[in-house]
Simulated scan of single mutants.
Amino acid sequence: MQKKIFFSPFLFILLTTLSIFTVHASTPDLLPLQHAWAKTNYELEGEAQLEAFSALIAQAKVLVEQSENSAEALTWLAISQSSTASAKGGLGALDFAESAKENLERAIDKEETVLDGTALTVLAALYHKVPGWPVSFGSGKKAENLFKRALEVNPHGMDQNFFYAEYLFDEGEYKEAQAFLTRAQNAPEKANRPLADEKRREEIAALQEKLNTKA
């Protein structure tokens, strides 16, 4: 198993990119938030990105209230918070990561299959990426369990398979990682997330290059 270091006095590494998923028809107000997140995550940097993520968190909180704490809105609030943690870095990221975890857990308690396994996948990725005790809540075992639950919900999803492949790669399970990465490569694209799909394909290709060196 490879030892991973995610924390130093100067750097706190969370997800560099997070998943973007199809919004259920029952929550149409989330679609503009989804597209705004993609542009913020992939096209902005520095203070402009942080300001945009802060605005997305505020919008998501309004949608959570308006939807009476729907699982979909809670999930997107958590995605916005997680992305803010990633962009912010340092010890200041911890509060955003913890808030994201809490909201994902709330969403899963309401509807485990929300957004085709999105909440499960993002929570699994957080457990995989953040430092463990005593710094934060990171846990490889919890991450793996959540990834497997997400894949039961959405076995052919691009994001579910990619993030699990990334986890397996970090754990040194290269053969298994390749199997799930191949599933991600073969996953169908979705019409309402062109930018996110393009960027995810780039990440899939980058992970494939890493796996090729392990063959």
Rank of each mutant, 00 (worst) to 15 (best):
E176R: 05
E176L: 13
E176H: 10
A177Y: 05
A177C: 04
A179G: 07
F180K: 02
F180E: 00
L181S: 01
L181E: 08
L181R: 03
T182I: 12
R183C: 12
R183S: 11
Q185T: 11
Q185W: 09
Q185R: 12
N186D: 13
N186G: 14
N186F: 11
N186K: 15
N186Q: 14
A187P: 02
A187W: 00
A187D: 11
P188M: 09
P188G: 04
P188L: 11
E189H: 15
K190F: 07
K190V: 09
A191R: 10
A191V: 14
N192W: 03
N192G: 05
R193Y: 02
R193H: 07
P194E: 14
P194I: 11
D197T: 12
E198L: 07
E198A: 07
E198M: 07
K199T: 01
K199P: 06
R200N: 11
R200M: 15
R201M: 01
R201C: 01
R201N: 05
E203D: 08
E203C: 03
I204K: 02
A205I: 09
A205G: 01
A206D: 06
A206M: 04
L207M: 07
L207S: 03
Q208S: 10
E209G: 08
E209A: 11
K210E: 08
K210V: 00
K210C: 09
K210Y: 03
L211N: 03
